[in-house]
Design a binder for these strands. Structure first.
Lengths: 127, 127
DNA sequence: ATAAAGCACTTTGCAATGCAAAGTAAAAAG
DNA sequence: CTTTTTACTTTGCATTGCAAAGTGCTTTAT
């Protein structure tokens, strides 16, 4: 859908490929009940400004949703992975896996060894 | 060496993380005798200008070396992976693997299943 | 002979964006 | 009531990915 070529590198969507956002998405993947801004900030080791900017990008791409409310008279933003975001991210991870296996195969070509690996994501992905 | 934190995301070196350069490095990994500019261009599905720019970056980082000569009265640049480049790239791939396994673990947390995977790169890496 | 086209790149220019620093707003502390 | 803290958002700059144009040489028409 992105171009005429069908190589996995074309599927490395920039939106998830950025390390900061990769971390955010991965953390959210393990948090079905969402994570607060502050939780994410510490979990991802990001500065306030950075996290804010990345979240805006992810929200605009509809990968995450934010719920803002007040807790103890303080603002609290909780971030959730959207269904669409989860599916897209899983697709990205599958592309990453392909890239990685590709590199592994090439790296192993010199020194022949049994190719022992397993698909990490295929069995988890669902539209 | 890059900061106070020791998480794998910090080791996703930008120089290799860029999709175009990831492709270049992976292709070179499988080509111990180097690849010509034109070979790389088609293999990586990059435009002339893009390839040139990425190669300059990789050269400046001493990840690859270029040998220019004339073949049949035409210029021919052959690109080789440097020893340093190979080592650094393998380290990057290991970091990527960690990130991927991390995501796999989080994705699998919801739906428990046997965690069947194998280290893709650890056994290949060497300083 | 000379114009046009091709090859193998390199350079330029701009638009996007990651990141740091500064800004905002409200509450808690001193 | 001033300062600090919390929870963010906005601004600005410096980088850089990418497309388009440029360079220099050769080969192929005309």
């Amino acid at each position: 859908m992105n171009g005429p070529n069908d190589n996995p590198y074309a599927h490395l969507e920039r939106i998830f490929h950025e390390p900061g956002r990769l971390t955010i998405m991965t953390n959210l993947l393990g948090a079905p009940d969402g994570m607060t801004f502050t939780e994410l900030k510490t979990a991802c080791n990001l500065t306030d400004g950075n996290l804010s900017r990345h979240l805006k990008v992810l929200e605009e791409a509809k990968a995450v949703t934010a719920k803002k409310r007040f807790v103890k008279n303080r603002p609290q933003t909780t971030i959730f992975l959207s269904q669409e975001g989860r599916a897209d991210f899983m697709a990205y991870l599958q592309a990453l896996e392909t890239v990685l296996l590709d590199a592994a195969a090439k790296a192993a070509a010199d020194k022949p060894k049994k190719r022992a690996h397993v698909s990490l994501f295929s069995h988890l992905a669902r539209a």
